[in-house]
Amino acid sequence: MSSIRWPLLVRKTHKWLALFVGIQVVLWTVTGFYMVAVHIDYIHGDHLVHAKAPGSFEPGTLLPVERALAAAPGATEITLVAPLGRPAWKARTPEGDVLLDGRTGARLPAFTEGEIRQIAAGIYTGNPTVTSIKLLTDAPQEMASRKPPFWQVEYEGWAKPTLYISPTTGELISRRHALWRVFDFAWMLHIMDYDERSNVNNPLLRIATWSAFAMAISGAWLLFWAFPRKKKKKAK
């Protein structure tokens, strides 16, 4: 039985591993560079909206919290908000968030398209030209983690800036733009989750990671083997 030729075996293993995971290693490098080169606050779209200013109302004109809670059975949380500058109680209920008139406690209807335009205009910092506004009942890929319905307000600009606003509370749910979409695509390639783009422990990623580790180890072994080694002098 012939002895194993380790250099040849390791070299072949290294070559096939490099062919198998080489492209993914390049993708890890490129996508990782993009994700650290562009500031995360910019990716999040913080530059697209104004900082939220707290509302100021006379306490005596507001419905007491106890009565607001009574008007929203099952509410676990209640917050004073001010969509369009009017006081309202936002109650978190098992059926979802509801909005109550801040002075009477009456349940407020969903916001109209015109009101959503006003809300969006009050928080958006860029070119005010709206190119599209629609109420979505099916979430697009960029909002897959959010539960519809929500209003989608798109603005003019190369980055296609987009605001997503709740139809029941008028609150900003999220914002999206071109660099965020590139980041999302890069993240998908980086974690190798081509479906939901959120599972960082999927089988494909684990296989590629361990294969890349084995490639690095075999390459290091070959590098060590390539260095000339001094032969021991024979004893006289």
Rank of each mutant, 00 (worst) to 15 (best):
Met1Leu: 07
Ser2Cys: 05
Ser2Leu: 09
Pro7Ile: 13
Leu17Cys: 07
Val21Pro: 04
Gln24Trp: 04
Gln24Gly: 06
Val25Asn: 03
Val25His: 01
Leu27Pro: 04
Leu27Arg: 03
Trp28Ser: 09
Thr29Asn: 14
Val30Phe: 15
Thr31Ile: 12
Gly32Arg: 09
Tyr34Gly: 01
Ala37Gly: 05
His39Ala: 11
Ile40Tyr: 06
Asp41Gln: 01
His50Thr: 06
His50Ile: 06
Lys52Met: 15
Phe57Gln: 04
Phe57Glu: 10
Phe57Val: 03
Pro59Asn: 04
Leu63Met: 14
Pro64Ile: 01
Ala68Thr: 15
Ala68Met: 15
Ala71Pro: 02
Gly74Lys: 02
Thr76Met: 10
Ile78Gly: 10
Thr79Trp: 11
Val81Arg: 15
Ala82Lys: 11
Arg86Pro: 05
Arg92His: 11
Thr93Phe: 04
Pro94His: 07
Glu95Gly: 00
Asp101Arg: 11
Gly105Lys: 02
Leu108Glu: 07
Thr112Lys: 05
Gly114Trp: 08
Arg117Gly: 10
Arg117Ile: 12
Gln118Tyr: 01
Ala120Leu: 08
Ala120Glu: 06
Gly122Arg: 07
Gly126Leu: 13
Thr129Ala: 08
Val130Arg: 05
Ser132Cys: 02
Ile133Pro: 10
Glu142Ile: 04
Met143Glu: 12
Met143Asp: 07
Met143Gly: 12
Arg146Leu: 13
Pro148Tyr: 08
Gln152Asn: 12
Gln152Pro: 11
Tyr155Thr: 06
Ala159Thr: 10
Pro161His: 04
Pro167Trp: 03
Thr169Asp: 01
Thr169Lys: 01
Gly170Arg: 03
Leu172His: 01
Arg176Gly: 06
Ala178His: 03
Leu179Asp: 03
Phe183Gln: 08
Asp184Lys: 01
Phe185Asp: 07
Trp187Ser: 02
Trp187Asp: 02
Leu189Tyr: 04
Asp193His: 03
Asp193Leu: 04
Glu196Ile: 06
Asn199Gln: 08
Asn201Thr: 09
Pro203Gly: 00
Leu204Lys: 02
Leu205Pro: 00
Ile207Asp: 00
Ala208Gln: 00
Trp210Glu: 08
Trp210Ser: 13
Ser211Ala: 15
Ser211Met: 13
Phe213Asp: 13
Ala214His: 03
Ala216Tyr: 12
Gly219His: 06
Ala226Leu: 11
Lys230Phe: 06
Lys231Gly: 13
Lys232Gly: 09
Lys234Pro: 10
Lys234Thr: 10
Ala235Arg: 15
Lys236Pro: 12
